[in-house]
Computed example of a mutant assay.
Amino acid sequence: MNKKVNITTGTDASKINEALSASLKQYRSQKKMSLDELSRLAGVSKGMLVEIEACRANPSIAILCKLAAAMGVSVADIVNVASKPNAHLIAAGDIPCLWSGENGGTARLLAGTSGPDMIELWEWKMHPGEIFDSPGHSDGTCELLHVVQGSLLLTLGEERLIVSEGSSVIARTDLPHSYSCHEGGPLKFTMTVSERVR
């Protein structure tokens, strides 16, 4: 089981941490907002915000989502894979990995629109024993998932769904949920998230 849900280490983490640090500093400067105020607004500890602004933290996807929502932007805005007017090409080397599992799994944010109303496209790869837990997104968030390889165990609150290879599922993910590799072999799935940030 993956206990930590951190951004992957290495070059991706460094770029993402720098982009997040710059976004937080710019936002607080524009809004004349203290760390205490942003902490209350986002529901993220002041200590974590200090570490993020100093590029010393690898925040989880959940923390990225909370900060993006508090700032009225999308996670894609923060990691520089958000849409631009007309078209925005994202080179393969610029696609960030925002989660890495302890057995080699990854979650990459392939592309997304700018916030506050946003759509994101993700590619997930998971191996047996890996799990990603989410506390839930904002009200009305919907995810479309398609399993390309293997079998996905999707837990939504108390409900458990097994999504087999070639199958798809539509899920409201404004409640606690998790994804895990079900039964042997690797799992690969794509996910589109539609979220309206408050």
Score class of each variant (00 low, 15 high):
Ile90Ala: 13
Leu49Trp: 05
Gly140Arg: 10
Lys125Leu: 09
Asn58Trp: 00
Glu102Ala: 11
Leu64Lys: 04
Ile52His: 06
Gly72Ser: 13
Ile78Asp: 05
Thr141Trp: 03
Ile52Gly: 09
Asp94Trp: 01
Ile131Met: 04
Leu161Glu: 01
Ala76Tyr: 00
Leu156Gln: 13
Asp117Met: 12
Asp77Glu: 14
Gly129Thr: 13
Cys97Leu: 08
Ser134Ala: 14
Glu51Asn: 12
Asn86Arg: 15
Leu153Asp: 06
Gly105Thr: 00
Gly93Pro: 09
Ser114Gly: 13
Glu158Pro: 06
Gln149Leu: 15
Cys97Val: 01
Leu144Gln: 09
Ala62Met: 00
Leu154Asn: 06
Glu120Tyr: 01
Gln149Arg: 15
Glu53Gly: 09
Ala87Thr: 15
His146Leu: 14
Val50Ala: 13
Phe132Arg: 12
Gly140Gln: 09
Met48Gln: 12
Val73Asn: 04
Gly115Asp: 06
Ser164Tyr: 06
Val73Trp: 02
Lys84Val: 04
Thr141Asn: 05
Thr155Lys: 14
Arg56Asp: 13
Cys55Gln: 14
Leu121Gln: 07
Glu123Gln: 08
Asn86Asp: 15
Leu121Ser: 12
Ser83Asn: 14
Ser167Ile: 10
Cys65His: 04
Ile90Thr: 15
Gly104Gln: 03
Asn80Thr: 03
Gly166Asp: 05
Val50Ile: 12
Asn80Cys: 06
Ser114Asn: 13
Leu156Glu: 15
Met71Asn: 04
Val81Gln: 07
Gly105Lys: 02
Met48Tyr: 07
Asn86Gly: 08
Leu145Tyr: 10
Ser83Gly: 15
Asn103Glu: 14
Gly105Phe: 03
His127Asp: 02
Val75Ile: 14
Leu67Thr: 04
Ile63Cys: 04
His88Pro: 01
Ser164Leu: 07
Val147Gly: 06
Val81Asn: 06
Ala76Thr: 02
Leu144Glu: 10
Ser167Asn: 14
Glu159Arg: 11
Leu152Asn: 02
Ile95Phe: 01
Gly112Gln: 08
Phe132Gln: 11
Leu109Val: 02
Leu49Glu: 11
Ala111Thr: 07
Pro96Ala: 10
Leu67Lys: 00
Pro96Tyr: 04
His146Ala: 12
Lys66Ala: 10
Val147Pro: 04
Gly105Trp: 02
Arg108Leu: 05
Ser151Lys: 15
Val163Glu: 00
Leu67Phe: 03
Gly104Phe: 04
Lys84His: 12
Ile131Ser: 02
Arg56Val: 08
Phe132His: 13
Gly112Ser: 12
Gly105Asn: 02
Ser114Ile: 11
Ser134Gln: 09
Asp117His: 12
Leu152Pro: 03
Asp139Asn: 14
Ala107Phe: 01
Ala107Ile: 02
Leu153Val: 11
Ala54Phe: 05
Val73Glu: 06
Ile95Arg: 01
Thr113Gly: 08
Lys125Glu: 07
Pro59Ile: 05
Gly115His: 02
Pro59Lys: 10
Glu143Ser: 10
Arg108Ser: 06
Ile78Ala: 10
Pro135Lys: 04
Gly93His: 10
Ile119Thr: 13
Ser100Phe: 00
Gly157Asp: 13
Ala69Tyr: 05
Ser60Asn: 07
Thr155Asn: 10
Gly104Ala: 07
Gly157Tyr: 07
Gln149Asp: 13
Ser138Val: 11
Leu64Asp: 00
Asn103Trp: 07
Ser74Phe: 05
Gly150His: 05
Leu121Thr: 07
Phe132Leu: 14
Asp77Gly: 03
Leu98Val: 00
Thr141Tyr: 01
His88Leu: 08
Ala57Met: 10
Leu109Tyr: 04
